[in-house]
C-alpha cells in the first residue's frame, strides 16, 4: 500500500464521515473535505497521528453562499494533505489554530483582511496585508468586490 492509500485508510477508519470526500489527486497529493463540526479534531489527527506537522499555507475561497478555507499540511517526506472546511457567508467565524501552529498567524490575518472572515483567538498584532487606513467592510478577494467600490480618496492613490 502506498503512503497516500495508507493515509486515506487511516483517516477514513477514524472519521467515517469524511471517507467519501478523500481524493488522492496524484502521487503525494491528498484532498479532503471536512465537516465544520469535526474540523479541529481531523486537523489534529492528521497533524499529530498521521505525520503532517507542517502548515504550508491557508487558502480562502469565495464560493458564493459560503467560504471555503483550505489548510495545506505537509509531511517531512513531501506528501501534502489539504483539509477543506466551509463557513457560511453571513457569519464567517473560525477559531484560530495559532495555539497549535504558530505560523498560521499571517495566513489567518490574510483571511480576515481579504475575505472578511473573523478569526478568533489570534494574538494582538498589526493587520496584514492591507494598509491601516483601508476602508472598513471592503474585502478585496470576495468575488463581488470591484476596485470601483473604493471611495475617491483611495482611488486617487491607486491612479
Amino acid at each position: 500500500m502506498t503512503r497516500e492509500e495508507n493515509v486515506q485508510k487511516q483517516l477514513a477508519g477514524r472519521f467515517p464521515e469524511v471517507s467519501a470526500t478523500i481524493r488522492i489527486a496524484r502521487e503525494r497529493r491528498i484532498f479532503v473535505d471536512v465537516p465544520e463540526k469535526r474540523f479541529i479534531e481531523v486537523l489534529d489527527y492528521v497533524r499529530e497521528e498521521l505525520g503532517f506537522p507542517i502548515l504550508c499555507l491557508i487558502i480562502g475561497l469565495d464560493e458564493g453562499e459560503r467560504f471555503g478555507i483550505i489548510y495545506v499540511l505537509s509531511s517531512s517526506d513531501g506528501n501534502i494533505v489539504t483539509l477543506k472546511r466551509h463557513v457560511p457567508r453571513e457569519s464567517p467565524v473560525i477559531q484560530s489554530v495559532y495555539d497549535r501552529l504558530p505560523n498560521s498567524e499571517i495566513y489567518e490575518r490574510e483571511l480576515a483582511d481579504l475575505f472578511g472572515i473573523t478569526v478568533t483567538g489570534l494574538p494582538e498584532g498589526p493587520r496584514y496585508p492591507l494598509p491601516d487606513d483601508w476602508p472598513a467592510g471592503q474585502y478585496p478577494l470576495r468575488k463581488d468586490w470591484k476596485p470601483e467600490m473604493l471611495g475617491s480618496k483611495e482611488a486617487a492613490i491607486n491612479e
Binding site: C56, L57, I59, L61, D62, V72, P102, N103, E105, I106
Partner: peptide, 29 residues
C-alpha cells in the same frame, strides 16, 4: 525556500482562484 502555489480552475480560460505563498512569508516569524 519553498514557494507554494494553489490554483483552482472553473472550466473557463481564467482561474477561479490563485494563491501564492513565497518563501519569505514563511520565514518572517
Amino acid at each position: 525556500g519553498e514557494d507554494v502555489h494553489y490554483v483552482k480552475g472553473n472550466g473557463s480560460d481564467k482561474p477561479e482562484r490563485v494563491r501564492v505563498r513565497a518563501s519569505t512569508m514563511a520565514n518572517i516569524q
